[in-house]
Design a protein around this nucleic acid. Structure first.
Lengths: 188, 188, 188, 188
DNA sequence: AATGAATGAGATTTCATTCAT
DNA sequence: TATGAATGAAATCTCATTCAT
């Protein structure tokens, strides 16, 4: 039941946004009473924090596995991009909340999540920096900005990509990794 | 005074989100009363629509000028990316609202804005498609997905880029256009 | 209307206690809506504070006037006791709230009220101490405890005395002042 | 465990008041669950009634013993005042609840307690009346009002007296009985 | 004897909106 | 143009109580 509350609230948060989703909306969606909600969560914000925490912890766990498994910076980076994009299928809704509703966490909770989020980004920045050093990537790249560019592309895809449309998540991942590696210019 | 209402509400919407910002918050910020607000705007949503409309109309106007002025697809695309990123300095707050609060427009208003937004994106897609056709860009690019990638990068920068930090908006624009054109791989 | 809210809430607080009186109870009593209540008072506690503050400030003002007007310690003390008891008629309800609901004020507000309350008591203690020094009162009295005894008697009367019963407030005041001055023992 | 529930609830009722203390507060204080509470008490009010009943029955029992043991009205009265004040040490918290939370009993339960409370007071009134008749006390006293004055003083002391402060309960009792017997005026 | 989950009623508070002045 | 008072709906949250286990 706690799980159902989480599932339904994720859907509603995606659809209407956190602020505009009421506890009533959530409990109506699964046919229980407000009292039940507050038995399982201390507050609406506590639910939001729960969602954020389990999502970012999951991302960090999977990122870590890739960093340990892959050998080259190129494959490390590509695998991370692939798993982020392919994740749209399984947890696209979660991702959209994650990037939009952080502001509604309390100061302390927000800090906790932001810290982990930065860690995730820093890990990617390290891949880029290492790749530049060892010659896999172009010398004149700025690791930090390049990381933001890559994350911008992937994160943004959560906002528009429909996994049931013409392209599959894997196909999108392939297109995006090609774009990242080679840019758009025709070769001379 | 209508202008002040708009300015302050933009700041508040950025900071707390549309739903979580009350009319009281807005009028408190400029020291008037709620009655005044309703003299100038029919409703809270009308204000949000006003903000959206003037922003997207401005973007379309400037995009159109670039399309008419520039000659090659490459320069057309670069100029659009540059103006979007450099705009962070002048209207970053506006941009952040634009991409986040559309959901709080009514069905009709939302449709109007989405229509214009699609137009903006379609114009970019056309540049990419034309560039592929005429050989400026790689043959195997997918225009639509490439456009999403480019817009994802630029839009996302509104979320994290601080124009008063180490890099200027122009420097960021340069880094991003280089990334888009050439990717990250070292040349063989 | 703000006045009516205060008047009715005092009655209800006396009857049911602060915690057990709902905002709904209060606004129902005068036929307005909850929204109105919150237009006039920031919170339920703000109303309680308002009540406390205006009551204790009134008491201090009247006490001060007596201290300035009367000459002997005996008349000073008697006048204070008289006005407290005779006040039952005009503000008995207020008095009962005052002594019972302080706990429901916030820490800061509670401190403000307690401070003023102590001042009121200290002023009486000074009368007793002065009276002992100048020979009006018995040498072996303890000013502080004697003050508590006197205030205990008078305050307690707010809990049981019915001004519409057999005795008038003035008669009760006479009986109490006699008791305070002479005790109960038959003279030897 | 029932005893622990009672002990802890008394503390909480003193601190926060009956209405503002939740069952959750009580069971949290001793580390059990709400279900347990309802095994031992039919309702929150049942607990309050239990507390009131055992307290007033105890007072009546001890008062009765004094009435049977002491010979003169003066010693009877003094012994009752002494035991009430000295009781602050052992059951001060209980006393404070008793005088404050009666209102939260149901009509019937409230009547039972009020009945016993009146009996306690009537017994004191009888001592005063007898003392007047037999010449121990002044002729011009009003037994009922005098009783209220005495009970007011003693009851009020539960609100402010700290048995761990400068004075012991016995010392306070001595001061109060002296005050009751002799008043404050210096002898002529 | 005790627990954990759930309920339903009701509490305080917020807020967009209206309207007479 | 602007204000101040009021409204009504809905939001978050609390809480005494029940009940199957």
């Amino acid at each position: 039941m706690k799980k159902e509350l989480i599932t339904q609230s994720i859907n509603l948060f995606v659809e209407k946004g956190f602020s505009a989703t009421s506890i009533q909306d959530i409990v109506d969606a699964i046919g229980v009473t407000k009292g039940s909600f507050y038995y399982h969560f201390k507050s609406k914000e506590a639910l939001l924090m729960h969602i954020h925490l389990s999502y970012i912890d999951d991302l960090l766990r999977r990122q870590k596995r890739i960093l340990e498994t892959e050998k080259t910076c190129r494959t490390k980076l590509m695998k991370v991009v692939e798993f982020l994009i392919e994740d749209i299928e399984a947890q696209g809704a979660l991702g959209r909340i994650y990037y939009r509703e952080i502001r509604h966490l309390s100061a302390e909770n927000g800090a906790v999540i932001r810290e982990k989020k930065n860690q995730f980004r820093d890990n990617i920045e390290s891949i880029v920096a290492d790749g530049i050093k060892n010659g896999e990537f172009r010398k004149n790249l700025q690791p930090k900005m390049t990381t933001y560019a890559i994350l911008g592309m992937t994160n943004w895809s959560y906002q528009w990509f429909n996994p049931e449309g013409e392209l599959s998540v894997s196909e999108l991942a392939a297109i995006y990794t090609d774009f990242i590696l080679n840019g758009i210019l025709a070769e001379k």
